[in-house]
Amino acid sequence: MEKSDIKIIEEEKSFKQKLQPWGYLLPTIVILTIFMFIPFFQTIIRSLFFTDNFGKMQNFIGFGNYIELLTSSSFWNSVWVSFRFVLIVVLVGVVLGFVSALLTQKAFPGLAFFSTSYATPMAIASVGMALIFQVMLNPSVGIINKILGAHGNMLADPGKALIIVAILTAWLNSGMNYLYFSSGLASISDSQYEAASIDGANGFQQFMYITVPALRPTTFFVIVTNIINAFQSFGQINILTKGGPGEATNVIVFDIYREAFMNYRYGFASAESVILFLIILALTILMFYIRSKGGKVQ
């Protein structure tokens, strides 16, 4: 066979074939472009402008909004409030989810009922839960005051208000945390516990030397998602405290909402949004950095 009579046939893709992937991705591209990418860049641009009451960009003020923001004590209060809020949410939420997971680690009659119950907070709306808390905390008829024999309105107490909305948020997160922890526990094979008990480890030692190390990656993941969720809490705060009393529960997201939709300072609120985005971005990167370092040590 002569080489010369062999044609080299290039693979051809018809126009239709080339277009095909884009057809499948069309809704995704269109919706994400219109409702994510464009608004995202608009937010950044708007944050550099002074805006009117309708959000129209009036004049370019560069970093004016940012400077105002970073020099306002109200903003730093929001940051501090958010920080404490997130801390309580993560601590309480992780404990609630983890205890639930431990309690359902071994099979017993009625397990399905309990495990479904422990996961249900996932399905509960922040609004519904906030309304229930509102009644529970009602100064005159609420159960909490009756149990504690107290009379005051806890939500009017700056110290307690933040703790209450944080616990409520932690409760909402606890269902998801429970699922993550219990799947983490389920992935530890029984043979590890069996080997340890043959080696003479008691229940507590098994917990410390097998369960805890095995759950480290799960815990890390749970904490990251809880932090990100906590930063975005809005409904419960809007219903229970509206950022108050004073500014005691004025977390960043609520402050953005207040500045934009109550004070109509869209440019200023946009700058705050950008900062919120940067905080969450930084936290995410930091957490992954910590984990990658921790991973190497192991």
């Binding site: 409702f35 608004p39 909402y257 869209y266 985005f277």
Partner: peptide
């Protein structure tokens, strides 16, 4: 997924 909804909600709303 990294962008919190609250960071774009102002622009979304105005749009």
């Amino acid at each position: 997924m990294m962008v919190p909804g609250e960071a774009v909600i102002i622009s979304q709303f105005l749009m």
